[in-house]
């Protein structure tokens, strides 16, 4: 038989199969459900606000804070160094490069745990690694970092370090968030520029 007909039948057959594939895997979770469940029950995905405050104070470049709240809420206040990816915009291909990389720890936060958990499980399910959640979100941040006061007679070295960390974080948070929007944007723009230079890439 003519090879042309054989190849045509093969191609059309495969085409028919591809056309009836029931779901579009590029848009679905890549992890198997059991693996995802095991990962999501792990305690290692949580970071405390004190840990995040330390990252922020040290301007640690191995972490990227991701603020999942709306743009308006982000403008009002955010943890310095974080970028704003509103949760509704999480799957925008524009953010792919930020979320889909494992060199930098991605720390998701919202106002509480809920949105951060959604985002964490979506990112992890899609097969992206190195995702974390700031436990308690910004509510916890305000409660612990912004508003706790030391009340006691004697301070242990451990407590001293903890409170110094919180105090520094509080100072930076207040200062940067008090800046007018234009300067804030300038600050983040220069930070992002630095980041994109590090990443390189096609465009």
């Amino acid at each position: 038989m003519d090879a042309r007909i054989k190849y045509s039948v093969l191609l059309v057959g495969i085409g028919l199969i591809v056309a009836i594939l029931p779901y579009n895997t590029a848009e679905s979770f890549r992890l198997k459900s059991h693996d995802l469940l095991i990962k999501s029950t792990s305690d290692e995905i949580w970071l405390s606000v004190d840990q995040v405050a330390r990252f922020m104070n040290n301007e640690d470049s191995t972490v990227q804070l991701i603020d999942l709240r709306s743009t308006e809420q982000f403008r009002e206040c955010n943890i310095p160094g974080s970028i704003n990816i509103p949760y509704s915009d999480l799957l925008n291909p524009f953010w792919e490069g930020t979320i889909n990389q494992k060199q930098v720890k991605k720390i998701f936060y919202g106002n509480s745990d809920q949105t951060a958990c959604y985002a964490w499980i979506i990112a992890t399910g899609l097969g992206y690694e190195n995702n974390y959640i700031m436990k308690g979100g910004l509510n916890e941040w305000f409660k612990i970092v912004m508003f706790t006061q030391f009340s006691g007679q004697k301070i242990t070295p451990l407590e001293n370090a903890l409170f110094e960390n919180r105090f520094n974080a509080r100072k930076t948070f207040t200062q940067i968030n008090s800046l007018p929007d234009s300067l804030k944007r300038q600050f983040f723009h220069s930070k992002r520029l630095k980041q994109s230079k590090l990443d390189g890439g096609c465009e």
Partner: peptide, 11 residues
């Protein structure tokens, strides 16, 4: 869908 498009292109 990408699959249907593939079939159309093959045809």
């Amino acid at each position: 869908s990408p699959g249907l498009f593939t079939l159309l292109l093959i045809l």
